[in-house]
C-alpha cells in the first residue's frame, strides 16, 4: 500500500457569522490521510464534524489554513473548479441515500458520469453496471429506489460514489438510517472496498462503527482531541455472521432481498 497523501489538512479554521456573533466551528484542525486508509471521524453534535465533512467534501472552503486534496489546494479554486473536483475525486455517501426517486438504480449510478462530458453513453453504462456489480446489486439494475430496501438503496448510493473512481469515498453517517444488520452489511462492503485499496473517510457518532476502521479521529469543540490507529480492527463480516440469522450480505452470492429491514 502506497504512502501517498490523499488529504493534507493544515491548521484548518472555519468561522461563520451569525448576526453579530462569530461562530468558530473549526479552530485549527490538522491531519493527513494516506491512500488506502479507512478513517472514521467521530464527535458529538456541535463538535464541528459536519463542517469538517463539508470542507473535506469541497462543498465548503476553510476560512484559514490549507487543505490539499490529492495535491490540489482547494482554497484557491472557484465554484466550478470545486464542482469538477467533487466530480473527479470524491464519492459521496449520504445518510439519507439521496437517490433520485422514480429513477432506476442504473441511472442513479450513471448520474455523476453525466457531468463528465468526455464520457460516451456506452462507457457510462458499462461503468455503472460494473459499480453496481461491485456492491452486489448486479441483478437490481432496473429497480427504482422505492423497490429497494434501505440497505440496498445505500448500496446503490455507494455504487454511485464508486462509479467515477474517486480518490476518496466520503461517507456521512452512511449507516445512520439503517438497522444493525444492514449497517454491518454496509460496513462489510466498505471494508471490502477499503481492502481493494480505496481510501475511506467515514463520519459517524457511533463508536461501534468506528471499530471497523483503521484509524479514528475524535473531534471536540472544533479541535482534534484524539487521533489513534485502531490496533484490533473488527471485521464487519464476522460480526454479521455472528448475528442470530444471517446472510443479509455475502460477497460470494448475489444480494438477498433485505427489503423487510427498511427503517427509512
Amino acid at each position: 500500500m502506497s504512502t501517498q497523501k490523499i488529504l493534507e489538512l493544515h491548521d484548518i479554521k472555519r468561522e461563520f457569522r451569525m448576526g453579530s456573533e462569530i461562530v468558530r466551528a473549526l479552530k485549527g484542525v490538522s491531519f493527513d490521510v494516506s491512500a488506502g486508509e479507512f478513517l472514521t471521524i467521530m464527535g458529538s453534535s456541535g463538535s464541528g464534524k459536519t463542517t469538517l465533512l463539508n470542507t473535506l467534501g469541497c462543498l465548503d472552503k476553510p476560512s484559514e489554513g490549507t487543505y490539499l486534496l490529492d495535491g490540489v489546494d482547494v482554497r484557491k479554486l472557484g465554484r466550478n473548479d470545486l464542482a469538477k473536483l467533487r466530480n473527479h475525486k470524491i464519492g459521496f455517501v449520504f445518510q439519507a441515500y439521496n437517490l433520485l426517486p422514480r429513477t432506476s438504480a442504473l441511472e442513479n449510478v450513471e448520474l455523476p458520469l453525466l457531468y463528465n462530458p468526455a464520457m460516451s453513453a456506452k462507457e457510462r453504462k458499462e461503468r455503472a453496471i460494473k459499480a453496481l456489480e461491485a456492491v452486489n446489486l448486479g441483478d437490481r439494475l432496473d429497480h427504482t429506489p422505492s423497490q429497494l430496501s434501505g440497505g440496498q438503496q445505500q448500496r446503490v448510493a455507494i455504487a454511485r460514489a464508486l462509479v467515477n473512481e474517486p480518490v476518496m469515498i466520503l461517507a456521512d453517517e452512511a449507516t445512520g438510517n439503517l438497522d444493525s444488520r444492514s449497517s454491518y452489511s454496509i460496513m462489510a462492503l466498505i471494508q471490502e472496498l477499503n481492502a481493494q485499496g480505496r481510501t475511506i473517510v467515514f463520519v459517524t457518532h457511533e463508536p461501534d462503527i468506528a471499530a471497523f476502521s483503521s484509524r479514528t479521529i475524535m473531534l471536540k469543540d472544533g479541535r482534534v482531541v484524539k487521533d489513534s490507529l485502531n490496533e484490533n480492527k473488527k471485521s464487519a463480516r464476522e460480526v454479521l455472521a455472528s448475528l442470530p440469522s444471517s446472510d443479509d450480505y455475502a460477497p460470494t452470492t448475489p444480494a438477498t432481498d433485505d427489503k423487510t429491514d427498511d427503517h427509512h
Binding site: A83, R86, F94, N98, P112
Partner: peptide, 10 residues
C-alpha cells in the same frame, strides 16, 4: 444539492 455534490456546476 445531490447533483451539485457529485459534480454539477451552477
Amino acid at each position: 444539492g445531490l447533483r451539485m455534490s457529485i459534480g454539477a456546476r451552477g
